[in-house]
Design a protein around this nucleic acid. Structure first.
Lengths: 141, 141
DNA sequence: ATTTAATATTGTAATGATTACAATATTAAT
DNA sequence: ATTAATATTGTAATCATTACAATATTAAAT
C-alpha cells in the first residue's frame, strides 16, 4: 500500500478505523468492492472479484470480514430468495427492490416514518428493513 | 379423516382448495400448525411437532409443501438472522419485529402506504416485506 | 369395482453456503 | 529483536435445503 492507494483508499481506511476495524489490505478491497459496485454482492461474488487481485485470498477471510463489518455496523445483510446472503453498506436509510426476473437488488430511496423511530409498540428498534419484491422496470419492458 | 376432523379442518381445506392445492392430511396439519400457533415456525419446528401425529412424516414432505404453499400464495417466507427460513400465513398485510435476544418474530400491525401500491419508481410490486430488528418489549424489562 | 394414470409422500444421498478450527503469516508492542 | 496480538489461510465439518428414485395414495376411466 503506497502513495496512489493511499489516496484512493483513505476514505475507506477512515471508515474502517472509525468503526474500530483495522484497515487491512483484504478488508479495504472488500469494502471498496461493495461501495464502488453498489450491486449488493454475495460473499462469493466478492471472493471471485478480489481473488483476481489477491490470488491467495481465502473465502474464509471474506466471510470473516463480512461478519465483522456487520457486527461493527459498517454493512447490513440482505436475504433474498436465493440461497446466498447479500451485503450493503450502511449509510442513508433506504429500501430495496428485489427483481424476481433478473435477480437484481435495486436501492429505493423513500421517506419512511419508521426510519427515525426508536420504538414500535413497546419494542426497541435497532434497524428497519423494507423489501419490495416484484419485477423491475427493465424486466417489464 | 372423518367427522370430527371435517369440522375442525374445513376452513383449512377450503383455503387449500381455493388456491388449487389438494388438501392432503399432511398439508392440513402443516397449515393448521402455522395458523394456530402464529409463531412463524421453521420447517424443522413444523416437522418436530407434526411427526408426533404422523410418525412416518418426512422432512422432505414438509419442505415440498412449504415451497408449494409459498408458490401458491398461501404462505410467505421470513428470513431472519438465523439460518432457517420461517413461514407466515398470507392474510392482512403486516410487518414483523425480530427480537435479537429471544429470537421471536412478532407481528406488527401498521398502516403502510406501500401495502396498497402496485408500482414504485417504475418497478412492479408483488409483495412488500417490512422487518424491524431490535429488542422486544419483554426482553427489555 | 378394476385398471390406469396422476399426484403425494417418503428416505437417502447430494448440494452448497457458511462456520469451526488449527496453522501460518502479519502487524503492533515491549 | 522478541513477544504478544491479530489477520489470513486452507481444510474439514455443519446444517438447511434440494434432487431423485421408490413407494403409496388418490382420482379418473373403462
Amino acid at each position: 500500500m503506497e502513495e496512489r492507494e493511499h489516496d484512493i483508499y483513505r476514505k475507506f481506511q477512515d471508515l474502517l478505523s472509525s468503526k474500530g476495524v483495522k484497515p487491512s489490505f483484504q478488508r479495504l478491497l472488500i469494502l471498496e468492492y461493495i461501495i464502488k459496485n453498489k450491486n449488493h454482492p454475495s460473499a462469493e461474488m466478492i471472493y471471485q472479484q478480489i481473488s483476481k487481485n489477491i490470488p491467495t485470498l481465502s473465502r474464509t477471510t471474506v466471510y470473516n470480514n463480512l461478519n465483522l463489518f456487520v457486527k461493527k455496523g459498517i454493512l447490513t445483510t440482505l436475504k433474498t430468495s436465493d440461497s446466498e446472503s447479500h451485503y450493503d453498506i450502511v449509510d442513508k436509510p433506504h429500501a430495496h427492490f428485489y427483481c424476481s426476473v433478473c435477480g437484481r437488488i435495486i436501492d429505493i430511496d423513500l421517506k419512511m416514518p419508521f426510519f427515525s423511530r426508536t420504538f414500535i409498540q413497546g419494542h426497541k428498534i435497532e434497524e428497519v428493513k423494507i423489501q419490495f419484491l416484484g419485477i423491475c422496470k427493465k424486466c417489464l419492458q
